[in-house]
């Protein structure tokens, strides 16, 4: 893996997506645990206010006495800029909620700004033809500044590599996002870890080969994200 310490200095990772339940929390929650190993002064800002999400799972683990506490805070999208402007943290992950409608201008505006601040933009994509086709339209709404950043589309809930290839072939050519080679399979451990008192995928005790493969998949994905970003910025 590339020089992580150098890369994560003041890093801002923005996690976005056009729907609920596509894997944004899975990604954000586990990434903050990973990031915490390298930068104690980091924070996940949970703007996914509509549903039970990262901040709620962090409370679960705190109540269960699981260490370390995860630095996750719930911030309404309207307050995001003000909050960040006063933040002393050295690295941030910003997780946005589900799709903004045309009427939800405040959320849309906040997301556009966050994309401009972000150093890495991540978007999980459920491996289904409908979601794959819809992503192209979602991408069109994003600000042009995203062209200056590594933007990675991460296939999630993949049934098989063969089916994933078939689905990705149906995706219109994307303008900004690169589809990651690593993907997350449709595994119970990715959901069950949350239910285990808010544990991350890195903390579960594997009970099956599928669990072990899930941990490997997530590690591989993190490595690819970091390497992609490092290559982008060093280039």
């Amino acid at each position: 893996m590339q020089d992580i310490q150098k890369l994560i200095q003041n890093l801002v990772i923005v996690i976005i997506g056009d729907k609920g339940g596509i894997g944004k929390t899975l990604l954000a929650y586990n990434l903050i645990f990973w990031l915490l190993q390298y930068e104690p002064e980091c924070e996940l800002i949970d703007c996914d206010n509509d549903q039970f999400s990262s901040a709620d799972f962090a409370c679960l683990r705190k109540e269960a006495g699981i260490y370390p506490n995860l630095p996750i805070i719930n911030v309404p999208t309207q307050e995001l800029e003000k909050y960040l402007a006063n933040s002393k943290k050295k690295a941030h992950i910003i997780e946005f909620g589900k799709s903004f409608g045309e009427d939800d201008k405040a959320r849309r505006k906040a997301l556009e700004k966050a994309v401009k601040w972000g150093d890495i933009i991540l978007a999980p994509l459920p491996a289904s033809p409908v979601d794959a086709l819809a992503f192209g339209k979602f991408e069109e709404k994003l600000p042009v500044e995203i062209a200056n950043k590594p933007a990675i589309l991460i296939p999630n809930r993949v049934k098989s590599a063969k089916r994933l290839r078939m689905i990705l072939n149906s995706v219109p050519q994307l303008q900004y996002f690169k589809i990651s080679e690593s993907f997350l399979s449709d595994r119970l451990c990715f959901q069950d870890s949350f239910l285990d008192n808010g544990r991350t995928i890195f903390e579960i005790k594997p009970k099956s080969d599928s669990d072990r493969d899930g941990i490997k998949e997530f590690n591989k994905l993190v490595e690819e994200i970091i390497n992609t970003a490092a290559t982008f910025y060093e280039g």
Partner: peptide
């Protein structure tokens, strides 16, 4: 890479200011 993200490595406060 076509264009540099000039905000890379800067603090979040600086990123916000530069964007503004």
């Amino acid at each position: 890479m076509k264009d540099k993200n000039l905000n890379f490595g800067k603090s979040i406060a600086d990123k916000i200011k530069q964007t503004k």
